[in-house]
């Protein structure tokens, strides 16, 4: 474990807590893409199947359980509890356009052709594009609530910090995993446009609006 990975995990945890707080406090999931949350639940479910087979540390297990539980709780809040506030008309990204190519790629490019490893690879590839429905929804509505932009910033920073962690591990531990690194870079690049708007607008107290 290193400070970059730890701060990445904390940022990830913070993002999830901000999202849950936003939905629970405002009793509304306006502006939140349910499709991205479904994709995240799929990412954690397929990646953390080793929860029962390999024990790394109490921290690792606790975080995995939290990520899985919170992703399903968010889906429950969006599609059941506060479904009247779910903005279905603006959450129209076709998830199959993400899941199918990622599934094929996981079968073609992986480290080991075993079920657990292919599911892990699928999860890594899917996570890199899982935010697209949410970013698409923000661009379609042309704006995002400030709390939602904080959620996206924390979520984007988590994998950006993981990239620093991979550089650190390469130089100090000699380990690297190209699948995780390339997917992580793609994932972070997808946020760049949003990061620019967040820094130039939200941090100056303005509303996050996109040029419609």
């Amino acid at each position: 474990m290193n400070v970059f990975r730890l701060s990445g995990d904390v940022s990830h945890l913070l993002a999830i807590l901000i999202l849950l707080m936003k939905i629970w406090k405002t009793r509304s999931c306006a502006g939140i893409s349910g499709k991205s949350q479904i994709l995240f639940a799929l990412v954690y479910t397929t990646r953390y199947l080793d929860l029962f087979t390999s024990f790394i540390s109490p921290y690792n297990t606790a975080m995995k359980v939290f990520f899985i539980a919170s992703s399903y709780a968010t889906i429950y809040l969006i599609y059941l509890k506060f479904k009247a506030t779910y903005d279905r008309n603006h959450d129209t990204f076709r998830m199959e356009f993400l899941v199918l190519p990622v599934l094929v790629l996981a079968f073609v490019v992986n480290h080991d052709f075993t079920p657990l490893e292919i599911l892990w690879t699928f999860s890594i590839y899917l996570e890199s594009v899982a935010i697209l429905p949410q970013l698409f929804m923000v661009s379609k509505t042309g704006q995002a609530e400030t709390i939602t932009s904080h959620y996206l910033f924390a979520l984007g920073m988590y994998r950006a910090l993981y990239i620093v962690n991979w550089v650190y591990r390469y130089y100090f531990e000699g380990f690297y995993d190209l699948i995780a690194i390339i997917a992580g870079v793609v994932q972070t690049v997808l946020y760049c446009d949003f990061f620019y708007l967040y820094v130039t607008k939200v941090l100056k107290g303005k509303q996050l609006t996109l040029p419609a």
Partner: peptide, 10 residues
């Protein structure tokens, strides 16, 4: 490439 030990990352 040297693989990360059994995916010890989240």
């Amino acid at each position: 490439n040297k693989r990360m030990q059994k995916h010890d990352e989240l």
